[in-house]
Nucleic acid binder design. Structure first.
Lengths: 135, 135
DNA sequence: TGTTTGTATGCAAATATTGGCATATTAGAA
DNA sequence: TTCTAATATGCCAATATTTGCATACAAACA
């Protein structure tokens, strides 16, 4: 199938658009557990959709210990155009709310690295609060 | 489902992208038989995909006798942004070739209106040639 | 009214996608 | 080497999509 068709097809799923939205807004690398917590979805679900997005050429990945960081693949100029478009287009509440939660979750990073795995939904906000109160 | 997700999902099909490509490049109304001839697909196939695109809010339609003309719905500004993006993004050979054939097919219009139904593939180019040689 | 023409649609088979569970893989730590 | 943690994947059932055919519909015209 035509490559661009394949790419646009890969976009056509709510979970995948929510994942991409986080990468596009954040602009830097993210690991799976940060996505799991931000989107409140099972890990296997996120992993599978990331895999589909990766096959479509959206991501680079890089392992650091047991963590794997994904990053948008901006080396292709038509990808870059696509991301720019989506950044403006995905302006609905859901996408904004997802990013707000991601930003909270990123407070748990230390020296720019994820240092916790995924956190049961009920503990997440408490944990973030404790963390930000540490001095 | 989220409206924008639904819209992007509707894009995720080769036939539908090819149809949209023709509208976006041409910028004016088109009838089903012009699409059938340009994309060389069965009429029911085109009609069904147009229906999906219409449900996603991409088209207005207008009947003139037995012909039905479709037109891009530009009244929504986020649609307009999407079309602008696609105009640049759908730059592959297939999309250009489709538009070249459409332009040929449009030579059969008279006073801006489609006056023939769909034409067997083998006769199309001959018919266009005859038409353009008239006077 | 009957026929033709452009377009739409109901139905069923073929195919593809999604979501859930269990389990595999990989690397670090004990 | 064994355990744990982060991530990936194989398998299956459920669901959705696509395609093809036949046919319906609506307007024009004889």
């Amino acid at each position: 199938m035509n490559k661009k068709v394949e790419i646009i097809k890969a976009l056509g799923d709510e979970t995948r658009l929510r994942i991409l939205n986080l990468f596009i807004r954040w602009g830097k690398n993210l690991c799976v557990c940060e996505l799991v917590d931000s989107l409140k979805m099972p890990q296997y679900h996120i992993s599978k959709h990331i895999n589909i997005l990766r096959s479509a050429g959206f991501f680079n990945s890089e392992r650091e210990g047991t963590w794997i960081y994904y990053n948008l693949n901006n080396s292709d100029s038509s990808n870059k155009e696509l991301f720019n478009f989506l950044k403006r287009y995905l302006n609905e509440e859901q996408f904004e709310a997802d990013y707000e939660l991601l930003k909270q979750r990123l407070l748990l990073r230390e020296e720019g690295k994820c240092v916790v795995g995924f956190i049961p939904e009920k503990d997440l906000l408490k944990k973030i609060q404790m963390k930000t109160e540490e001095v």
